[in-house]
Every structure is written in structure tokens, then in C-alpha cells.
């Protein structure tokens, strides 16, 4: 019987301690720096355009085929403001399908895609969490602001686009 009393003692002891839970919607626990939320596209504040050129590397490497993209000629390049000859035109991610594996970020040659800290994305429709370029860039800007993100490969010599 002694061991049972010991068990009662353990529960009593924990009762007197502070609870470890947080009240979720009121109180958000901080996410870690590396937290992988949904993917987002980054914004080049210097030239005011996305980093993404629509090269499709991430799309070809995505295990769940949750993204699509098309590219177009970059109008800013013609004006000589940007070094990017092509720029992303349409970029759509079905976040309901995304498995947050970070493969897209790893294969990206332009630092154009990041795993943002966005993770609350419940919607009322099944397809409600398809996000377009605009929303992705918004998420990306938010992420860049929150974490002070800086491109790391932009300075390095670019590898050829390979899949």
C-alpha cells in the first residue's frame, strides 16, 4: 500500500506547483527562430520586387506538388533597375497540401522562398488555403520584418538552375 501512498504524494506535490499549460488563443508561446511555418516568398526591398524569378526548382522538388508558378519578363529589368531578367508572375501554393518539409527552401537558388512563422491558417472552405503571390509576399514581408531576415546566397555566385 505504501507505493500507492507515494503516488498520491506525487499528485499532491504537482498540484501545488504551477500549471505548465498556457491558455492558447489568449497566450501564444513563442516559436523558435527556425520554426517552419508555411512557405512564403521574400521581397527584395532594394528593388521593390520579389526575389523569386519563377524558375520552378521548388515546384519540381516539392514532394506533394502543392505549388505552381509562371514567370514573365521583368519590366524593372528593362528599365535597368533590376538584375533579374525574369520575374515571377503567378505563384500559388495550396497550403492545405503543404507538408512543411522545407525542401523548397533548400533547393531555392535565389533565397526567394522561406518557411515563415505563419502556422494558424484555418479556413472555412476546403480550398480556402490556396494562397496566391500577393498573400505569399505579405507573409514573407511579415517574416522578414519579424526576424530581420537577410539573403545569404545573393552575394554568392549563383549555381546553374538545376533540378
Amino acid at each position: 500500500m505504501l507505493n500507492s501512498l507515494k503516488g498520491l504524494g506525487v499528485t499532491l506535490k504537482t498540484m501545488l506547483r504551477k500549471p505548465v499549460t498556457a491558455q492558447y488563443p489568449k497566450e501564444h508561446l513563442p516559436v523558435n527562430r527556425r520554426y517552419m511555418g508555411f512557405p512564403a516568398l521574400t521581397w527584395d526591398f532594394q528593388v521593390q520586387e520579389p526575389y523569386c524569378v519563377g524558375c520552378m526548382v521548388c515546384i519540381r522538388n516539392c514532394p506533394t506538388q502543392c505549388m505552381t508558378a509562371t514567370l514573365k519578363d521583368n519590366p524593372l529589368h528593362k528599365e535597368g533597375k533590376s538584375t533579374r531578367r525574369k520575374i515571377v508572375d503567378i505563384f500559388e501554393v495550396n497550403l492545405g497540401r503543404c507538408i512543411l518539409c522545407e525542401i523548397c527552401v533548400e533547393v531555392c537558388n535565389f533565397d526567394a522562398i522561406v518557411m515563415s512563422h505563419e502556422h494558424e491558417l484555418s479556413k472555412y472552405e476546403r480550398n480556402g488555403n490556396r494562397v496566391d503571390l500577393q498573400a505569399l509576399l505579405e507573409m514573407g514581408k511579415q517574416y522578414q520584418e519579424d526576424t530581420g531576415w537577410e539573403p545569404e546566397q545573393a552575394a554568392a555566385p549563383k549555381e546553374g538552375v538545376q533540378a
Binding site: L12, T14, M15, K18, P19, V20, T21, Q23
Partner: peptide, 13 residues
């Protein structure tokens, strides 16, 4: 509430 406290939770809040 009591079970919550035993289990380090807050219980209904």
C-alpha cells in the same frame, strides 16, 4: 479544476 491542478493544467477557464 482539481484534476486539472493534479495534472498541471488549469482546468476550465
Amino acid at each position: 479544476k482539481f484534476l486539472g491542478r493534479i495534472q498541471m493544467r488549469l482546468g476550465p477557464m
